[in-house]
Write a protein that binds this DNA or RNA. Structure first.
Length: 301
DNA sequence: ATAATTTGACCCCG
DNA sequence: CGGGGTCAAATTAT
């Protein structure tokens, strides 16, 4: 019992640390942005999405912390396990931004002429020790063994490609086995509209119960949902082939625990959709603040 | 029943 | 022609 409490405390600390780290990353991005000359389009198309991602993570950390705090005082509702928030050391590479050493000056000009080719320059890419969830719903449409990669590469497109004509795609390339490492490369931008629950909108100034994301807990009455969403991540759904069953031992600590936290895995509520998709057609699909930067790029079209 | 994944074929492009 | 990306029919999951 005291153990639980200390576990909870530890988890809280971890969450806070994580939030701090993420905020630092965000700061770095912003500083880097202002130190480097980028066109608006570059900032908008490359920097923003990542910054947004980081901001989201910060918010998640807040939410998790709050959740932990509230759960701690009400232990009967569920056991809070330390979610082994093994730092999601994910590094981001913005391929288009990387040439700050003057390697390729033309990119600024090239920003709009990518229409010619189908395979455009990546929007951004990210290495991660786990499968990235980014808040969007992806549909796998292929996989390939590429010539000089030892591992499979899988191809995903936005689920709304056909019903909304959303052009976004991504590739996930496993680049390392032992400490699992994936490179996720995004192409194109989402223009799909997702029904967005107003509660989920970012509302920095709400003073009282600012647990913005905790609205999930109200959206989903039972904690099964949480379990579901957390397990789905590491097991089947997303990257069946490529998924590593025992995600770098992150879950090792947790027997069958129903930890209610949103770990970085669940970070993006994408996964929550799995149980809603059939049953509730117009449901508040529950995720995404992506609307925030919904100024769909000047790209293409 | 519908939706997602699997997987070999197909289709460019260099 | 080969490689990488996508399609689509069959299969599997929900």
């Amino acid at each position: 019992m005291e153990n639980q409490a200390s576990n909870g405390r530890k988890a809280i600390e971890e969450e806070l640390n994580k939030g701090r780290d993420t905020a630092n990353q965000l700061l770095e991005i912003l500083v880097h942005k202002s130190n480097t000359r980028h066109t608006d389009a570059e900032v908008e198309g490359l920097v923003l999405p990542f910054a947004e991602d980081l901001a989201r993570k910060v918010l998640i950390s807040f939410s998790n912390t709050l959740l932990l705090l509230s759960t701690q005082s009400d232990v009967s509702d569920g056991v809070v396990m330390p979610v082994a928030v093994n730092d999601v050391s994910s590094s981001l590479i913005c391929p288009n931004l990387e040439d700050k050493d003057g390697v390729r000056k033309g990119s600024i000009n090239a920003k709009r002429r990518r229409i010619s080719n189908k395979r455009n320059a990546p929007t951004w890419e990210k290495n991660s020790s786990h499968l990235i969830e980014d808040g969007y719903i992806w549909r796998k449409y292929g996989q390939k063994m590429t010539i000089n990669a030892k591992y499979l590469r899988t191809y995903y497109r936005c689920t709304h490609k056909y019903d909304q004509g959303c052009p976004a795609t991504k590739q996930v390339q496993r680049i390392q086995e032992n400490p699992p490492l994936y490179r996720t490369t995004y192409y194109g931008h989402h223009n799909c509209k997702i029904s967005l629950s107003p509660e989920i909108m970012l509302e920095p100034a709400s003073s009282s119960d600012s647990s913005v994301f905790l609205s999930f807990s109200t959206t989903f009455p039972t904690k099964e949902k949480y379990q579901f969403s957390s397990s789905v991540l590491s097991s089947t759904k997303q990257e069946p082939m490529e998924v590593i069953p025992d995600d770098c031992g992150i879950h090792n600590q947790l027997p069958s625990a129903d930890y209610n936290l949103l770990s970085d895995y669940e970070l993006d509520f994408n996964c929550l959709r799995h149980d809603t998709m059939q049953s509730m057609p117009s449901s508040t699909e529950s995720f995404l603040f992506d609307k925030v930067c919904g100024s769909d790029m000047d790209f293409d079209v």
